[in-house]
Design a protein around this nucleic acid. Structure first.
Lengths: 142, 142
DNA sequence: TTCTAACAATTAGAATTCTAATAGAATTAT
DNA sequence: ATAATTCTATTAGAATTCTAATTGTTAGAA
């Protein structure tokens, strides 16, 4: 298994995740919150359902993650367009500020991860991983 | 965030993970067990500490994962070399059989993930991910 | 209109993994 | 030899995420 694709993806993700949690530990963010915060940075005003999909967690799990963030004053949730079923999520000023800080931490870790990479290699990696993502999201198959 | 390295690694890993759990659902394996089973397939007789390191879970978490697998008769644990501190983990015949089955499922998913990849691309991806892993495991730095 | 089905978010409760503290065993230093 | 330290695994308890079921809302059919 040690050289399998699954092993490599798992290791890379979890090492990244661990580094990220170490960096954000002092902010009071729980382990599930940084990725949501970072997602909102580029997708402010999204509906919960979409956040859950993008962050690869269940909507039910997102409820408690967002409740925590709302309690800390990082986000607000409100219905729009007269549709009281969907809740749109917005960063507060404090949330924006923290997300900016978290984003720089993401970038630091990314820089460490990509140490020694040429620009071409970065692009290759990005393209290959995107391709896998598309394959995995495709219906059917084995 | 959507195109960041972290996002790509997370998505790839979790999509892989989800596909794997869907395939192994009927075996009665819990979510944490397949990767351990697959690791033991290539590293039978390892000590718990090493399994935890390779599978990126805490030793304390591994204890309960292994307890579950032992209860199902997939593994046995015993001290060797007169050192009663370390426990060596071995697959039983049933464990070997199941690990073989699980391994074929891993490969099916991997095949789907790598659909349309040339051999050269597979090798590139492997090399790039291995390089990141080495970078992340390096001490210090940001 | 009114009923039925689909939908978004939530709640309840189970399962998994984590952190911190403990127990037992081996190693090192005094 | 004995004491202190280190080490491996475990236990206890908290935190996170999951599945299944519920609530309230919207859309579509009868």
């Amino acid at each position: 298994m040690k050289e399998s694709l699954h092993y490599l993806l798992m290791s890379n993700h979890l090492l990244f995740q661990k580094a990220l949690l170490a960096e954000t530990k002092d902010t009071g963010l729980t382990s599930g919150q940084p990725k949501v915060l970072d997602y909102l940075r580029d997708h402010d005003g999204t509906v919960q359902k979409e956040i859950a999909l993008a962050c690869h967690i269940e909507p039910a799990s997102l409820t408690s993650v967002l409740a925590g963030m709302e309690g800390k004053g990082l986000i607000t949730r409100k219905p729009l367009n007269g549709n009281r079923r969907s809740l749109f999520v917005f960063l507060t000023d404090a949330g924006k500020e923290l997300s900016t800080w978290v984003d720089t931490e993401f970038q630091k870790i990314e820089k460490k991860a990509l140490a020694g990479f040429t620009l071409k290699e970065e692009e290759q990696l990005n393209a290959l991983l995107s391709k896998i993502m598309k394959n995995m999201n495709a219906k059917g198959g084995k």
